[in-house]
Design a protein around this nucleic acid. Structure first.
Lengths: 138, 138
DNA sequence: CGGGATCCACTCTGATACTG
DNA sequence: CAGTATCAGAGTGGATCCCG
């Protein structure tokens, strides 16, 4: 069942990769956080996120629904109405995600600084001649 | 700077997408967890993870180094030796990641069950005729 | 040993058009 | 309104070869 291409101490973090594969995409977390306030309709969510295409909203909601994080309720009315809502499991995911978000905000500047310095040093390294002039290239 | 294609309550979760874009890839978390035990050499890590290609190991380490999560130390010996180590920032990331991992493990079965039922219902839906037989479904 | 460079396969995402 | 279907482009990851 569980493929073990990583054979160190898998016990501690086998599920992380799984979870990250699901919520690590571009929209899942945004949708979960959006649904945290309560049920939403399809186009309502589309408008609120609006960088998202209807395709990705559909696909992401399907994935979340498949994993039991989101429930889908169809009202057979005219016009049709479909509500998406966080399941208890989906709500429970909010806590660790929020923790990650708090870490992110707490360290945003630190990361930005590290990036800036890394890029600066990379630029420096690229600026100096790539050839060895140690032998006295005349 | 910060593009706002999501205009709901961005304050609460703007950094999450950033962080997920970094650690949400296939190997970053694995590497961070691996380095949690202490410094490791390049090929040593490659052997321990072993599903990974040298390319992705290099790329992932570069990304982590750029964000200040991992430090790279070169020993100019023969053969060359390079150690990778978690920075304090990298170590601090372990906590929220572990929280996510614990959530994952706590809910692995629930997710698997949800997936199984979803797939089962999808199969059912695909099996029955795609045309409406509503006129006679009493 | 620790990479860099290149090529290729696959996936993910978005844009567009059509359906019930 | 709430999707589905198809296509095209970008991005991601792997395999291979090469270099210091």
């Amino acid at each position: 069942m569980t493929e073990e291409h990583d054979h160190f101490h898998t016990e501690g973090c086998l599920g992380i990769s799984r979870v990250l594969a699901r919520i690590g995409d571009k929209w899942s977390v945004l949708i979960v956080m959006l649904l945290a306030d309560g049920p939403r309709r399809f186009n309502e969510m589309k408008r609120m996120i609006d960088g998202i295409s209807q395709r990705m909203l559909t696909l992401t909601l399907r994935g979340l629904e498949r994993d039991g994080l989101v429930s889908r309720t169809v009202f057979p009315s005219i016009p049709p109405r479909v509500d998406y809502e966080l399941t208890p499991l989906g709500h429970s995911l909010r806590e660790p995600v929020m923790a990650l978000g708090q870490w992110a905000q707490a360290n945003l500047v630190g990361i930005a600084e590290a990036q800036a310095e890394f890029d600066r040093r990379s630029a420096d390294a690229a600026a100096e001649p790539p050839l060895q002039r140690a032998a006295g290239m005349r």
